[in-house]
């Protein structure tokens, strides 16, 4: 079965235990205002252009067969003398992807690591993800997920995983909808499944100034995680102003409604109150 990925990143050090290779699956049902991987939003391959260094030589325009709208033919990619263009997103067969990843199995095992699936939202290509995970059973397998997934599918995916990194972006459903475009109900249900699964996991909060960095939201999140046996830690990931860097490359606008220049609250003390291990990174 085929899936769409937009990157394979070796030597990932923040995506689970040990040294890992992270596969980015393309496409996401959420639209978080702070998303820094805009090329992971659409499920289809897209043209990506580094516009800053462009000299406007016109070669890409001259060769384009469809000036009215990009058909992702890739002709302009080779035409660019500076190599500023590429197609992000590639259809791959699960077996081929798994074979490629298995090539580094010995290396990754020696480094106490494995493979992590990220995105986009990896569960959004659930069947492809499951097939790849099954083929990778000899390797330590992890996921980075928003948790936004049909609960049955989520349970099935969990059963193929050794480690889970899941976001809790907001505990308040209305605010969750406002800033991510979806309700957090499925996410919170999946969190309960995750807690019961016996799989070691890590919770991440992308801390966005004025959005989810209130004491109340931290407190509500901490409450959800009190007395959770297999929780490694909660990680607070501060919003970074460079989040918007890639939007222009995929011809999108970056228009966050929150205050991007305010430093987010990274106070871990509230989590400590609830005996929930937490650190800011």
């Amino acid at each position: 079965m085929y899936g769409t990925i937009f990157d394979i990143k070796q030597f990932a050090v923040f995506d689970g235990p040990g040294i890992r290779t992270t596969v980015f699956l393309k496409g996401c049902p959420l639209r978080c205002e702070w998303c820094h991987n805009p090329e992971g939003l659409s499920f289809s391959p897209q043209l990506m252009v580094s516009k800053a260094a462009c000299t406007h030589c016109g070669r890409c325009k001259a060769i384009c067969p469809s000036p009215s709208g990009c058909i992702v033919c890739g002709k302009c990619v080779r035409a660019c003398p500076l190599g500023l263009r590429r197609i992000t997103g590639k259809h791959v067969e699960a077996a081929d992807l798994a074979a490629k990843l298995l090539k580094d199995r010995t290396y990754l095992e020696k480094q106490g690591g494995g493979v992590t699936f990220s995105g986009g939202e990896p569960t959004a290509q659930g069947e492809f993800l499951l097939e790849t995970l099954r083929l990778l059973r000899p390797i330590h397998r992890a996921i980075e997920t928003s948790g936004y997934c049909a609960p049955d599918l989520f349970r099935e995916i969990l059963s193929e995983l050794d480690y889970v990194i899941m976001d809790i972006k907001h505990t308040d459903d209305a605010l969750h909808r406002r800033y991510t475009g979806v309700s957090n109900q499925k996410i919170l249900r999946n969190l309960e499944q995750l807690k019961k699964s016996g799989k070691p996991f890590r919770i991440r909060i992308p801390v966005i100034p004025g959005v989810n960095d209130s004491e109340e939201n931290f407190r509500e999140t901490a409450k959800l995680l009190t007395d959770t046996e297999h929780l490694d830690t909660v990680e607070l990931l501060p919003y970074h102003q460079t989040a918007g860097a890639k939007y222009e490359m995929v011809d999108m606008d970056y228009k966050p409604s929150f205050q991007t220049d305010r430093l987010p609250n990274l106070n871990t003390a509230i989590f400590a109150e609830y005996n929930v291990p937490c650190r800011a990174i």
Partner: peptide, 8 residues
């Protein structure tokens, strides 16, 4: 492809 491939 990445640093792992490079050192290999």
């Amino acid at each position: 492809e990445g640093p792992v491939s490079i050192i290999k």
